[in-house]
C-alpha cells in the first residue's frame, strides 16, 4: 500500500515538472509579448534613439547593427568552419588519421564550453587594443569564434553522413576529387550544414556579453565597420538597466523584436531539416 502511494506521488511529481516548464515558458513569453506589443510602434523600426530625457525614438540603428554584425561574423566563420569540417572529415576517412585532427576536435569541444564573456575580452585584447577603438570588426570576430565549434562540428558530421556511394558515383563520372568534395558531397550535406549554421546564428543574434567591449554599442548610425556599432541585445541591456520608464518600454519592445528574430531563425532551421529528411 505504502509502495503504491509513493509510486503515485512520484509519478505526480514527474508530470508536474513537465507542466511546470511549460508554465515558466508561458509567463516569460507572455510578458515579453504583452509588454513588447504595448511598447512597439512604427517609430521603433524607423527612428534612431532620442537623447536622454526625451520620449520616443526607436532602435533602427541597433536592428541594422545586429544584422551587420551577424552577417560579418557569418562571412568569416562559415568558410573557416566548413573547410575545417571538410579537413576533419577527410582526415578521419584516410588511412591514418592525423594527431592534429584529434587535437583540433578536442580544442573545438573546449571552445564550445568557454563562456561568451571570455571570448569578448579575448577579442578586446586581440583587436580593440591594437586598433585603439571599439569596432564592428571586433564584435564580429568575437561572434564568429562563438559560431566556429558548432559550424565545424556539424560540417564534419554531415559530410561523414554522406553515403560512400555518392562519392563513388561522382568519382566514377570522372569528376575531380576536389570538385566531388565541393560540388557533390558538400551539396549533399548542405541541408544539415545549413541547419547547423542557422542554429549558431540564432545563438549569436542574442549574444550580448561578447559585444560589450568589442562592438560597444552606438546611439547613432555606425560610420564604418572600424568604429563602434549598435546591436539590439546591447541596446536592450543599456535600456533595461537605465532609470527611465520610456527606455524600459523600449527595452521590452526590443526584446519582443529580438525574440521574434531568433525564433524565426530556429523555425527556418527546423523546416530545412524536415524538408530534406
Amino acid at each position: 500500500m505504502k509502495r503504491k502511494i509513493i509510486d503515485k506521488i512520484m509519478q505526480f511529481l514527474i508530470y508536474t515538472s513537465g507542466v511546470l516548464v511549460c508554465f515558466v515558458l508561458l509567463i516569460i513569453l507572455g510578458y515579453i509579448v504583452l509588454k513588447g506589443i504595448s511598447s512597439l510602434s512604427l517609430d521603433f523600426f524607423i527612428r534612431l534613439p532620442k537623447p536622454v530625457g526625451e520620449v520616443g525614438g526607436g532602435m533602427v540603428n541597433a536592428i541594422v547593427g545586429s544584422f551587420v554584425l551577424v552577417l560579418l561574423s557569418t562571412l568569416w566563420s562559415v568558410p573557416i568552419g566548413v573547410l575545417s569540417g571538410v579537413y576533419l572529415a577527410e582526415s578521419s576517412s584516410s588511412a591514418k588519421p592525423s594527431n592534429f585532427s584529434s587535437v583540433l576536435r578536442f580544442l573545438l569541444d573546449v571552445l564550445s564550453g568557454v563562456p561568451s564573456i571570455v571570448i569578448g575580452i579575448f577579442a578586446y585584447s586581440l583587436i580593440v587594443l591594437p586598433m585603439k577603438k571599439f569596432s564592428a570588426i571586433a564584435g564580429s570576430f568575437a561572434l564568429g569564434i562563438i559560431m566556429l565549434p558548432t559550424i565545424t562540428r556539424t560540417a564534419e558530421e554531415m559530410i561523414k553522413m554522406v553515403p560512400r556511394s555518392i562519392k563513388e558515383a561522382s568519382l566514377a563520372l570522372g569528376i575531380n576529387y576536389w570538385k566531388t568534395m565541393f560540388f557533390i558531397i558538400l551539396n549533399t550535406a548542405k541541408p544539415g550544414i545549413l541547419t547547423g549554421i542557422l542554429i549558431a546564428v540564432a545563438r549569436i543574434f542574442g549574444e550580448t556579453a561578447p559585444l560589450l567591449f568589442t562592438a560597444f554599442g552606438n546611439r547613432f548610425w555606425h560610420r564604418s565597420l572600424f568604429g563602434p556599432i549598435a546591436a539590439l541585445p546591447l541596446q536592450i541591456f543599456a535600456y533595461a538597466i537605465s532609470p527611465y520608464d520610456d527606455w524600459h518600454k523600449q527595452a521590452w519592445a526590443g526584446a519582443l523584436v529580438l525574440i521574434l528574430i531568433v525564433y524565426m531563425i530556429i523555425f527556418i532551421s527546423r523546416k530545412i531539416l524536415l524538408k530534406y529528411r
Binding site: 573547410l83 575545417s84 571538410v86 576533419l88 565545424t152 576536389w178
Partner: peptide, 30 residues
Amino acid sequence: KNFADKLFFSVTKVAAFISFALIVLLFIML
C-alpha cells in the same frame, strides 16, 4: 590527386589551422 585537388586540400588544412590557432591564441592572450 592532381594539382587542383592538392590545392583544395591545402586550403582546408589552412582553414583547420586557423581554427586551431585562434583557440590557442585565446588561451595565450588570457
